[in-house]
């Protein structure tokens, strides 16, 4: 075997190892400038292109891009992360460091609806712990978990800015104030 073909073979092996590793731990192909077909939908791509226009450099739109794709796909999977990273021309690792920092970016699947229960001081005084307990009683789900039917994920959230109507919670994008535990079932009717 000539020296040249040996190194070729080594290269192939390396690529194969790399392919496997990338499945396991998100080593991005993007960072090594290999081609990977971007799977953003036309709508997503259009929205991302609009977002980028607001910033002097593409990466400025990183958070907008994560939230936009999340709106369409529910959460940010490794594949979504690669799609966005490639669009923004940054590495997937770089983008993941952002995605994992911000709590409104979901790097794990969530239910069809997400309930954010405010646990900051004004809501604590007015009984947010009882609200959390009621959710657990009704839907058998703790903070950070999703119901087995995939209907609801429950997360804690920092002060929602509705302190005069504490305790407050937000389901998807709707804010509810003065949430007494006995009102919970009624509120949840809207979110199937």
């Amino acid at each position: 075997m000539s020296e040249r073909s040996e190194s070729c073979e080594k290269g192939e092996k390396w690529k194969e190892t790399r392919r496997l590793v990338s499945h396991l731990s998100l080593v991005s192909s993007v960072s090594h400038k290999q081609t990977r077909w971007t799977m953003l939908t036309d709508t997503e791509r259009r929205e991302l292109e609009d977002a980028v226009k607001h910033y002097p450099e593409k990466r400025g739109a990183a958070i907008d891009a994560l939230l936009t794709v999340q709106r369409h796909r529910g959460w940010i999977s490794d594949e979504s992360l690669l799609d966005i990273a490639q669009f923004l021309e940054i590495t997937a690792e770089d983008l993941d460091s952002i995605a994992t920092f911000y709590n409104l970016v979901f790097r794990k699947p969530v239910g069809r609806h997400v309930a954010f229960v405010c646990d900051s001081i004004s809501c604590w005084i007015k009984g947010c712990e009882q609200v959390q307990e009621q959710i657990k009683n009704l839907y058998d789900v703790d903070l950070g978990q999703t119901t087995s039917d995939g209907r609801l994920t429950v997360l804690p959230i920092a002060c929602l800015g509705h302190c005069e109507r504490a305790p407050a919670m937000m389901i998807d994008q709707d804010v509810y104030g003065e949430v007494a535990p006995e009102k919970m079932e009624n509120i949840m009717e809207k979110y199937k």
């Binding site: 990466r59 400025g60 994560l66 923004l88 409104l104 970016v105």
Partner: peptide, 24 residues
């Protein structure tokens, strides 16, 4: 610019990093 959570974003230089698309 709609942000994605984290109290520290209210600190002005953290906010600037967040706006640049970085960790706040």
């Amino acid at each position: 610019h709609s942000s994605a959570g984290r109290y520290i974003c209210g600190e002005e230089t953290a906010l600037i990093n967040a706006l640049e698309g970085k960790r706040a």
